[in-house]
Design a protein around this nucleic acid. Structure first.
Lengths: 242, 242
DNA sequence: CATCGGTATTGATCTGGGTCAAAGTTGTTG
DNA sequence: CAACAACTTTGACCCAGATCAATACCGATG
């Protein structure tokens, strides 16, 4: 359901929301890594790592948004995931990444030397459990996205995406609060399996129908949340009926 | 790459290929579960568990094939994964499944009481690491499938699927050995985000082009493997170029 | 071996979204 | 503030694949 923006139990003290790997919060457990972590900033639009590249670090996104994507020989691109603060780049036990990772905004990473991280995973059972949970969350979200890519119409795809952005902007429950699209039209298109023209048209159409207004290209306000949710093609609450 | 048919290191002694959870192989480690496992058979076409249902067991597929799918209100269905021998239904730490699970063929399950299984995951670090690895494998495969669903043409989708079936039929390296489609045209369509008519047409077209022959509806032989692989739209070896 | 129900093929037609093209908008840089 | 580049919108047209419909192919069953 929440592909982009998972709510996870964080420590609340720092941008790396996973206690298990937040070196700032669980000093004792992670003291092994203390000397080994380093921060790095990547500018908007720059590649972070290419598919197949050797992975020397396991990194956690501290701030900004990165995308995971694959491009076919002829240039068709599919974004298969967005990485937000607390998400990882690289996994213990994997030499390479399977997708291109790109900075969608300026991105700050907290990097751990891979070998040490893997050792940690082996030594601290708590951590492999946490990584397992994260992987299972993302697996479920990826499958949810497969339904969107395989079976939803353009209108439903856009509505699902917007609804996700709105749901993510957790803090301001003030109705009518404006939200910000984190991606360009082209990036949205590559995420939804559409073209940028179709994205633009559908957004215009939702505007015409009074579902949204745009303050500018990126900032928008939802006028009719019920209509938006209806348009996603999902069950009422995206949840369990039984 | 290998969404359906992962090659995994098994114990080679039993149908549950994961040592970590194969009670028949690692008797010592898993003796806790000895008394708690039970076998169950589900007939072809029957539901195994519905999305949202309470999950009393974690099961491992012993034989047969099951599908994970989601159906929208109006009947559009997307298959998000196939479960083969050694794959799990249910995950430690999750009360419910997020997708409908259906027996595509007759399926035999080996079931463990969920609570006990979860305890095992907590107590034996080896196991959470194994589940983590499996989840990461499936996550990568799911993302690979997202590329197919979002960006590939009907022809490329079919070619990818056939190539996968062929690659899975690991044993007979005898060229020209016939293979069997594990799914009906409709099931293939729901897996590829197509209609059954399009699946049928593309298969006919590949037959006409001399890529395949069909012995009957389900059994086929690849005549031109290179052409098949070309048609998938993937890189030459589906792998790392750097 | 005739009938029947599920499955598959093939044809005819339609259409959602892609493609190609031309402005319009906004932000940036000298 | 002019000029340019990057992004976005909108229009016109097209086509891959969906939809609708008819027929063919099995395998099972009495």
């Amino acid at each position: 359901m929440n592909f982009v923006f998972n709510e996870r139990d964080g420590c609340g003290k720092c941008p790396i929301r996973h206690r298990a790997v937040c070196a700032r919060c669980d000093e004792d457990e992670l003291s092994v890594l203390e000397g080994m972590k380093s921060y790095k900033t990547i500018e908007q639009g720059e590649p972070i790592i290419w598919r197949g590249d050797d992975l020397h670090h396991i990194s956690s996104v501290v701030s900004g948004i990165a995308s995971l994507s694959r491009t076919l020989e002829d240039g068709r691109t599919q974004v298969v995931g967005l990485l937000l603060p607390s998400d990882f780049i690289g996994s213990p036990g994997r030499q390479t990444v399977d997708f291109d990772v790109t900075a969608v905004t300026d991105v700050t990473l907290c990097r751990f030397e891979r070998r040490s991280f893997e050792k940690l995973v082996q030594d601290v059972p708590h951590i492999s459990q946490r990584v397992m949970e994260m992987a299972l969350d993302e697996l479920s979200a990826a499958r949810e996205w497969m339904v969107l890519l395989g079976r939803k119409t353009a209108r439903e795809k856009i509505a699902t995406f917007i609804e996700m952005v709105v749901r993510r902007d957790t803090v301001p429950i003030h109705a009518g609060q404006p939200h910000t699209l984190p991606l360009t039209r082209e990036e949205i298109a590559n995420f939804l399996g559409l073209t940028l023209e179709t994205v633009s048209r559908q957004l215009s159409s939702m505007k015409k129908d009074g579902v949204l207004t745009f303050e500018d290209r990126r900032r928008f306000t939802v006028l009719d949340l019920a209509a938006l949710q209806d348009a996603t093609g999902d069950d009422a609450d995206g949840g369990i009926i039984v």
